[in-house]
């Protein structure tokens, strides 16, 4: 194929389709595992792991109602944009030792911005529903977004800055961050700082995914489903898939930032088996991230009030993140670890 702007179109199209299919499948499996594990922690049996697949199939065979006072084109476009933008994030994140489709383009700052697009699509869909519940839900989603962006940015910037201080070229590129685990360049203070930042990122994940304790925008008991209140059938199924893909995206971002190791380097395996082993290990790492930052937090807590979301994320978690960043800076100032 003739390269266009230095990209092989066939490779990009094929890669995108593969990532979309695998991302959706992995997302639904992770949602199913999350529900099963949650149920076991609550002394229940819980649904089978394939339950999310059943839910999606059921939603697809139901009517999709567009309310009378909604804006139809925006109401119907929002779920598609949410799912598509969630899949786009995956195109920039590495899976095991397989480089992302758009590996050479865009960096971790771009991923940070892309993470807001699915949430913005949900906000737009909520406002387009023409329901007061959905409007309140959309406003809450925006407040939640404002709250978690700052701690998320601190965690990402601190890692990239520490790599830059270690003299590694192009520290904001995801390939660089994944190839140079931050733990291998930090000293003792920086190690403590990075542990704190890992905790901060684990707490940002439920807010990013609108899961308990940060499901204030959906809040079934008070807002009757919040910004999804008017959605049904196919549109609701698309949002359901988008939430699964977002779970995969957040988990693989956490893996790329803090747990980027591969096992193929330690095992003598033929190349194909090496890729497979790395993918299996990558899925295992994502499962660990989802378990701790989604399932455990979800079981252990009730829902925050919207004011609490702001004070917890802007106050405590931002403070914790800044402490982690300070420790990383002190690490460099005292000359511990790898310094350029």
């Amino acid at each position: 194929m003739i390269p266009v702007f230095g990209i092989d179109p066939l490779q990009v199209v094929g890669g995108t389709i593969a990532v979309a299919v695998l991302g959706v499948l992995a997302g639904l499996v992770f949602l199913g595992i999350d529900r099963k594990v949650t149920a076991h922690m609550q002394a229940r049996i819980g649904p089978p792991i394939r339950q999310p697949f059943r839910d999606v199939r059921k939603l697809l065979c139901k009517d999709s109602i567009v309310p009378e006072n909604a804006i139809p084109w925006l109401f119907n476009a929002a779920p598609i944009v949410a799912l598509a933008s969630a899949i786009v994030i995956l195109l920039y994140l590495p899976a095991g030792s397989i480089a992302p489709v758009f590996g050479g383009y865009g960096d971790i700052i771009l991923v940070m911005y892309l993470l807001t697009v699915p949430a913005l699509a949900m906000v737009a869909g909520g406002f387009a529903s023409g329901s007061p519940y959905a409007t309140v839900g959309s406003q809450r989603e925006m407040v939640t977004m404002i709250s978690y962006e700052f701690p998320l940015a601190i965690a990402i910037i601190a890692v990239a800055w520490r790599l830059a201080a270690a003299g590694i070229a192009d520290p904001f590129s995801i390939a660089t961050i994944a190839a140079n685990p931050v733990w291998s360049v930090v000293g003792p203070l920086g190690f403590a700082g990075c542990l704190i930042l890992l905790v901060v990122l684990a707490w940002v994940t439920p807010a990013e995914l609108s899961r308990i304790p940060c499901d204030t925008p959906e809040a079934e008991t008070e807002l009757a489903g919040g910004l999804l209140v008017e959605y049904s059938g196919r549109n609701l199924a698309l949002f359901y898939l988008a939430s699964g893909v977002k779970t995969v995206a957040m988990a693989s971002l956490a893996v790329a930032l803090f747990l980027p190791w591969n096992i193929s380097g330690y095992l003598a395996l033929p190349p194909a088996a090496g890729y497979a082993a790395d993918i299996a290990f990558f899925l295992l790492k994502m499962l660990v991230v989802v378990f701790f930052s989604v399932s455990v937090i979800r079981v252990g807590m009730a829902r925050f009030r919207i004011t609490h979301v702001v004070s917890v994320y802007w106050g405590y978690l931002a403070g914790l993140g800044l402490l982690g960043l300070l420790l990383v800076v002190l690490d460099v100032a005292f000359g511990a670890g790898v310094i350029a």
């Binding site: 529900r35 149920a39 229940r44 049996i45 819980g46 649904p47 339950q51 059943r54 839910d55 109602i65 519940y133 809040a219 079934e220 008991t221 807002l223 009757a224 489903g225 999804l228 209140v229 008017e230 959605y231 049904s232 609701l236």
Partner: peptide, 15 residues
């Protein structure tokens, strides 16, 4: 535990 059978309580009649 009705979630064993996929039964879930939802907040909106649309769902």
């Amino acid at each position: 535990d009705p979630e064993r059978f996929g039964v879930r309580l939802v907040g909106s009649p649309k769902h």
